[in-house]
Amino acid sequence: MKRYAGIFGLAALLGGLFVLFRPSQPEPERTPNPPSTAQSADTAAPGLATAVMSTTAEAPKAPEQTPATESFEFEIQNGKLISGPTVVKVHQGDKVRLRFSSNVPDELHLHGYNLKAQLRAGTEASLEFKASKTGRFGFELHHAKAELGAIEVYPR
């Protein structure tokens, strides 16, 4: 039993070190006035966030200016994506705009965020939201039953 306790002690120690030394939610990225809600993010002075430094080298393309809207365009033909990224990578708190144009009407669903957009032939539809939830969320065409791609929201 003593040995067993030793093993659990070791596990606990490793766990403790892990929490202690993990790269924290990057401190330098905190703006003096961290935007906590969608409203405050909208109104936050852009100058405050330009001082952002990206510390996580492996993180996908961290945007230099956080509150700017990340815009992505998708062109759909007959229920298939013919141009536009299949994986959209953004960071938590980013404002995201997904713009879709389709030659046939359909309904677009973004999972996780539970957003819908009605696509009409010839007119552009767009989804605008603040990427508040981290994770990988697919978007699909409801009628064509086609998975178009996914948005990956990484923590800051």
């Binding site: 996580t56 697919g138 996914a150």
Partner: peptide, 18 residues
């Protein structure tokens, strides 16, 4: 035509440092 419906989970890949 139906296979693409298979969707990935909402888990993000674990970062390299981790």
């Amino acid at each position: 035509a139906t296979a693409h419906v298979m969707q990935a989970p909402y888990n993000l890949p674990v970062p390299l440092w981790l």
